[in-house]
Design a protein around this nucleic acid. Structure first.
Lengths: 107, 107
DNA sequence: AGCATATTCAACCTAGAAGTTAATTAACCG
DNA sequence: CGGTTAATTAACTTCTAGGTTGAATATGCT
């Protein structure tokens, strides 16, 4: 699986996006991360593994805790990819689109 | 399924991203879209349905053709979401991170 | 009408995602 | 050492994604 697909796939789950939002506020242990969610700790552990594989988090070791922290580097790749389409949602493009439609009708 | 998850999920497939890239060059019929791919037309048809459900393409009707065209609006939502993390991959943040580490060690 | 082309629908298969519970590993604490 | 806490691993279930092939639908052409 290519990198971008892996990142998009990791981001496609609201629980995982919520985890990233939590980590944006700072490091947290697995239990701390799991606390607000209505699912089992094991399920959270799996989500963390997915995020780690996608490069979105890194995990350290402190005694029996595995503090997680955000690594936003892959998000930059997402941003780079998506801005390639920026022209298509901008005003400018809508105007261009309208213009092309008008031209086409005139012929 | 929430909108953003649906869009991320749609983008998590390289074939679908390739389809979007193709449509960025202009409208295309299903057959035209399918042509470069080594999978069946039906599989492409399914991918298109996913993209349509995510709001990333729209489909018209011209005789027996269903021309597809890109709709980048959902990509804007992706861009908006991801830029919320921009600070975490920027230089500024790395410096802040280093600074915080240094402070912490000094105590 | 009858055939060709474009596209979708239906049924099916297989692999993987997301969750569960139960058991295991690892580290600290008394 | 024995118990507690933190986290992962294992085994299992259920559902869905992505692919296949074959049949159906819709439109254009002669």
């Amino acid at each position: 699986m290519d990198r971008l697909s892996e990142v998009f796939s990791a981001l496609a789950d609201p629980t995982r996006r919520a985890i990233l939002a939590r980590l944006a506020e700072g490091e947290a242990t697995v239990n701390q991360i799991a606390e607000p969610f209505p699912i089992s700790l094991q399920a959270i552990s799996k989500h963390l593994k997915v995020l780690e594989k996608a490069g979105l988090i890194t995990r350290g070791r402190e005694a029996q805790w595995r503090p997680c922290r955000l690594d936003a580097a892959p998000l930059r790749e997402v941003a780079d990819w998506v801005t390639g389409y920026q022209v298509f949602w901008e005003e400018r493009y809508d105007q261009l689109s309208e213009y092309l439609k008008r031209i086409q009708k005139e012929h």
